[in-house]
């Protein structure tokens, strides 16, 4: 079972799955305070575009983790959706390994679930969290952050999607047998104009 790519907000806040809302708030405040201090230091030393994007993403992740986990309904939905998408990936893999007939239907179900999971918990809630009063107060998140964050979040979401996609069974093509020394020779020939 692989969970890589399906963001775990409990890990983001360094909390166990059965944590209480009070612990969520306490850890969030501490981690956000540390992050704000780190950002201030980085700003003093000279902020680069890469650093700015990284801090924006860290801030958005903390805000979203807090926003989802402090509310029991949202937390429950998140845990259910995450478990569902992980289980569907496992079922699809098993079906492919066993050469069963339900491969295509499981693939479609998984595809819909993973898209829903990423869109909801890595974009929609991230933007919603940025407008939440408590998050705004702790992180000083404003419209300028949101404007920049939409691009950063889109790339982040897509990067995670690709991370997941790369380990999934091949379905559009047959699994390729890649010999990298042959690839290197082919590229060399192409660059030589052959």
């Amino acid at each position: 079972m692989s969970e890589q790519g399906y963001i775990n907000y409990f890990e983001v806040l360094d909390l166990p799955v059965d944590c209480k809302p009070g612990e969520v708030r306490k850890n969030y405040k501490k981690l956000m305070k540390d992050l704000v201090i780190e950002i201030a230091k980085a700003a003093h030393e000279g902020m680069t575009d890469d650093k700015r994007d990284k801090y924006l993403l860290d801030m958005a992740r903390l805000n979203t983790a807090f926003y989802i986990l402090r509310d029991n309904d949202r937390r429950e939905r998140y845990v259910q959706d995450r478990d569902k998408v992980i289980a569907l990936e496992d079922q699809w893999r098993a079906s492919v390994n066993e050469q069963r007939d339900d491969q295509e239907s499981l693939r479609r179900a998984y595809d819909a679930a993973v898209r829903h999971f990423l869109a909801t918990y890595m974009e929609e809630y991230m933007l919603e969290a940025g407008r939440d009063a408590e998050c705004v107060e702790a992180s000083r998140w404003d419209l300028a952050h949101e404007r920049h964050a939409s691009r950063v979040l889109r790339h982040y979401r897509q990067r995670l999607y690709n991370e997941i996609h790369e380990r999934l069974p091949y379905f559009q093509i047959t699994p390729p047998a890649i010999d990298w020394s042959e690839r290197s020779r082919t590229i060399s020939a192409i660059l030589a104009g052959m």
Binding site: E104, Y170, Q172, I173, T174, A177
Partner: peptide
Amino acid sequence: KGPPQLPSELVLRLAD
């Protein structure tokens, strides 16, 4: 019937 799977040997040659 259903979505086809493309042969990777041919796709690789096409890509090159």
